[in-house]
Simulated scan of single mutants.
Amino acid sequence: MRLTGGRRSRQLAIALAGALIGALAVFLAAAAALAETPVLRVSVLKFGTVNWELDTIAHHGLDRANGFELQVQGMAGGAAAKVAFQGGEADVIVSDWIWVARQRAAGKDYVFIPYSKAVGGIVVSADSTARTLADLKGQKIGVAGGPLDKSWIILRALAEQAHGIDLAKETEQVFGAPPLIFKSALGGELGGAINYWHFMAKMEAAGMRRLISVAEAAEDLGLDPETPLLGYVVKGEMLRDKPQLVSGLAAASRSAKALLAEDDAEWERLRPRMKAASDAEFAALKAGFRAGIPAPGPVDEDSAAALLALMARLGGSDLVGLASDLPDGLFVEAGS
């Protein structure tokens, strides 16, 4: 039987309408799923190295694969990120667990997910005669941060234990932002410089010599250099009310680290945002990040307690506040 033109047109219209309805249903389902995906607002230093991991998470969809949408909020400094977090404008920040322990001791329910064990150290010029911390007596030392910088405290403790000297009294300190210490050190203005790990990597790539790393100093002090110092910080209410979000963040972080630990092509993709000045600097930054990846599993709380005790002894309440002992519930295990 032949179809008339009108009947054929009606059938085509019905088929088209059915296809449109099907497409609309798919679209609405996708939109509903998108709307249900919780957003995690992560406030971090705009040019911090954590952005390399966050970029990897977003680029490979590791956030959505783990049940959340990552929203990175670049901040001018660590203090601004903490203000945003404490004021409810951010869900996650990156900080050291000493700060988190201080907040918990003061009654704030914050928890710590390990992110990195990377630490800096002290470097000297290539022609420096210094071979130990004792050789820095009478010299000008640049320290990134302030008098309560954790690396400075650990190096002071080692100088006291190994050489019987107080670096705070036996040297002249110049405290400043990491870029300032970096430039002053390269300019030959300092007898030694203590800086964050990525600036230390850049200084070594530029020809400066490592006197001792903070990891080596910690080990000499009987501390565990494998204890991660930096981590993602979330509020305890999120851990209680939305545990899948916290575990999703931890799992996404671990998956990104697995890529960055093995895949050199991923680093080539990231290279433009790393702003490495040379191939040597790029290689040093990549190696430093990889060396800082913590092993999976829980943080050794005895080792953490020993480090906190050292910080309390040399930094006092200005550094640790009321956290004389390691607060319960501080650490959340990262994804495996």
Score class of each variant (00 low, 15 high):
Val119Ile: 14
Leu190Ile: 13
Tyr110Gln: 10
Lys117Thr: 03
Lys140Ile: 05
Gly207Gln: 09
Leu148Gly: 14
Glu160Ser: 15
Ala205Ile: 11
Ile181Val: 11
Ala134Leu: 14
Ser116Cys: 05
Met200Pro: 01
Gly188Tyr: 00
Asp135Ala: 06
Trp99Val: 01
Trp99Gly: 01
Ala126Glu: 06
Val100Gln: 00
Ala101Ser: 04
His163Val: 05
Ala101Gln: 00
Asp135Ile: 01
Ile194Leu: 11
Met203Ala: 13
Phe175Lys: 13
Thr129Tyr: 02
His163Phe: 09
Ala193Gln: 09
Trp97Gly: 00
Gly146Arg: 14
Lys137Asp: 06
Ser128Glu: 10
Ile122Lys: 12
Ala144Gly: 06
Pro179Ser: 07
Val174Arg: 00
Ala134Phe: 03
Ala185Gly: 04
Thr129Val: 01
Leu155Ser: 12
Ala185Phe: 03
Ala201Gly: 12
Gly138Gln: 07
Gly121Asp: 04
Ser151Met: 14
Ile154Val: 11
Ala162Ser: 06
Ala205Gln: 07
Arg209Asp: 09
Asp166Val: 02
Pro178Ile: 00
Met208Ser: 06
Lys202Gln: 14
Pro179Leu: 04
Val124Pro: 05
Arg210Lys: 13
Leu155Tyr: 08
Asp96Ser: 04
Gly121Cys: 09
Ala126Pro: 07
Arg209Gly: 09
Ala126His: 15
Gly142Val: 03
Ala185Ile: 02
Gly191Glu: 02
Leu211Glu: 10
Ala177Cys: 14
Trp197Gln: 09
Ala106Ile: 12
Ser116Gln: 08
Ala118Val: 07
Val100Cys: 00
Leu211Lys: 12
Phe112Met: 01
Gly176Val: 04
Ser184Glu: 14
Gly138Arg: 09
Asp96Gln: 01
Gly138Lys: 09
Leu167Cys: 11
Glu170His: 15
Leu136His: 05
Leu136Val: 10
Leu133Ile: 04
Leu211Ala: 13
Ala168Ser: 13
Gln139Leu: 11
Lys150Leu: 14
Gly145Asp: 05
Ile141Glu: 01
Val124Asp: 07
Asp149Phe: 15
His198Glu: 10
Asp109Ala: 07
Gly191Met: 10
Trp152Leu: 15
Leu155Ile: 15
Ala177Gly: 14
Gly187Asp: 12
Glu170Gln: 13
Gln103Ala: 07
Phe112Ile: 00
Tyr115Ala: 09
Lys137Ser: 12
Phe199Cys: 00
Lys169Glu: 12
Leu158Gln: 02
Arg102Asp: 01
Phe175Cys: 12
Pro179Gly: 04
Thr129Ser: 12
Glu160Lys: 14
Ser128Cys: 07
Gly142Arg: 02
Ile194Met: 13
Leu190Gln: 07
Met200Glu: 13
Gly176Ser: 06
Lys169Asn: 09
Ile212Pro: 07
Leu136Cys: 05
Leu148Phe: 14
Trp152Gln: 08
Ala168Trp: 08
Thr171Met: 08
Pro178Ala: 02
Leu167Glu: 05
Met208Val: 07
Asp109Gln: 06
